[in-house]
Amino acid sequence: MEGTVDGFRYGVVTPVAAYLMACLGGALGLRCIVRTLLSHESWKPGWLALGAASIGCGIWTMHFIAMIGFQVVETRIRYDVGLTVLSLAVAIVVVGIGVFIVGYRGASTLNLSFAGVITGLGVAAMHYLGMAALHLNGTIHYDPAIVALSVVIAIVAATAALWAAVTIRGFLTSLGASLIMGVAVTGMHYTGMSAVSVHVHSRLGGSWAGDSPTSLLLPMLLGPAIFLLLAGVVVMFDPLLVLGDGDWNRRPASAARTAPQSDSLFEDQEKKASREDQERRVVQARAPQDPHWAAPRGPQR
């Protein structure tokens, strides 16, 4: 029989929490990518890796927080630990490929499109791999058209996020981009979940083996959540990441103003030395002819 699928078991709590985690991961990831663009002296591989891990952890955490609110009324749900962890690795690695493409090859239209497709497919793969980790007393079916739509949303969201990372430099504008990215990623998740239908094997499945989703997911969510908090600390302690301007790579304005003055001072000193040298030659030329002539003294200091 067809199971009763409910993706909002706890009301708006899980969607809002999932959205906030997606925004946090996106914001940290975008700032880390911008960091490599603002300062050529920064350690680019490290910042790009931190950005990819932040975005990947944010997406993965968003997915499984949302899944805490997912239930099939007629059967209990459990998760395969191996596939759940593998979905996290896929999210970080594939997002990292897209981030490194943009970080090293530039933000041309071709590079952004290629990186966006790879990253979007990685986000979709993480989602459906996470769904494959779900076990219940029934069979999960998907609507192909809605699945395709969710993949398109993932690709568009990933491309927009990478474009924002290389185009938007200011802190507030990056924050706004991360909020939009959170909407897109969370929308992709719930679009994919709307494609789900479950055929329950028997009515006896209500007591089918398996712990509650929270007994597994909550402990597993602690690691990525702590990582995101630590990444946030790294970002907040780097002034360039917070301010988001490129002034650190340019000569300070005060130095620019004093440079012409310093140059003119050197020119004046050279002219003065030249005049003193000419006077010295005159003194040397007149001294043998006029023994009573006294050499002029230099300026009193």
Rank of each mutant, 00 (worst) to 15 (best):
Tyr142Ser: 06
Val196Ala: 13
Ser254Leu: 15
Ala52Val: 01
Arg203Pro: 11
Met220Ala: 04
Ala91Met: 03
Leu240Glu: 02
Ser174Asn: 13
Met126His: 02
His199Cys: 08
Phe70Ile: 00
Val233Pro: 03
Val81Gly: 06
Ser150Trp: 14
Gly130Ile: 13
Ile226Met: 14
Met220Tyr: 04
His135Arg: 08
Met67Ile: 09
Val151Cys: 07
Leu172Trp: 13
Val16Gln: 01
Glu2Pro: 12
Asn137Gly: 14
Gly192Met: 08
His135Thr: 15
Ile55Cys: 01
Gln278Asn: 05
Glu41Met: 13
Asp268Ile: 09
His63Ile: 02
Trp293Leu: 05
Ala18Met: 15
Ser207Lys: 13
Ser42Ala: 08
Thr167Pro: 02
Met220Val: 03
Val81Arg: 06
Gln261Asn: 04
Ile226Asn: 09
His292Ser: 02
Glu2Cys: 07
Ala17Arg: 04
Ile180Cys: 12
Ser108Val: 03
His189Val: 15
Ala225Lys: 04
Met62Ala: 08
Asp6Glu: 14
Thr75Cys: 10
Leu86Phe: 14
Ala27His: 11
Val81Phe: 14
Ser202Val: 11
Gly58His: 12
Leu241Phe: 06
Arg31Tyr: 05
Ala231Met: 11
Ile118Trp: 10
Gly51Pro: 07
Ala160Trp: 05
Leu134Met: 15
Trp293Gln: 00
Pro45Lys: 01
Thr109Gln: 12
Gly205Pro: 03
Phe100Lys: 12
Gly46Asp: 00
Val242Glu: 06
Val72Asn: 01
Cys23Thr: 12
Leu136Phe: 13
Gly116Thr: 02
Gln289His: 01
Leu204Phe: 14
Gly205Glu: 02
Val34Tyr: 03
Asp263Pro: 04
Asp143Asn: 14
Tyr190Ile: 05
Gln71Glu: 02
Leu222Cys: 08
Ala273His: 07
Gly210Val: 07
Ile118Val: 15
Glu270Val: 09
Val233Gly: 04
Phe237Tyr: 04
Arg257Cys: 11
Leu110Val: 15
Asp268Ser: 11
Gln278Met: 12
Ile153Asp: 00
Arg301Gln: 08
Ala287Phe: 00
Gln71Met: 09
Ala177Gln: 02
Leu230Glu: 01
Ala255Cys: 11
Pro224Tyr: 01
Pro144Leu: 03
Thr167Tyr: 11
Asp211Gln: 13
Ala294Pro: 00
Arg286Ile: 07
Phe171Val: 07
Asp268Met: 10
Lys272Asn: 03
Glu267Leu: 09
Ala209Thr: 08
Phe100Glu: 12
Leu230Val: 11
Gln284Phe: 06
Ser202Leu: 10
Gly244Pro: 06
Gly192Leu: 13
Ala259Tyr: 09
Ser178Ala: 10
Ile65Tyr: 10
Ile155Lys: 04
Ser197Gly: 14
Phe114Cys: 14
Asp247Leu: 10
Ile55Tyr: 00
Asp143Phe: 13
Leu20Cys: 15
Ser207Ile: 15
Thr214Met: 13
Trp47Tyr: 14
Val72Cys: 03
Ser202Trp: 11
His199Val: 15
Gln71Asn: 07
Ala132Phe: 10
Gly182Leu: 12
Met21Trp: 13
Val73Pro: 01
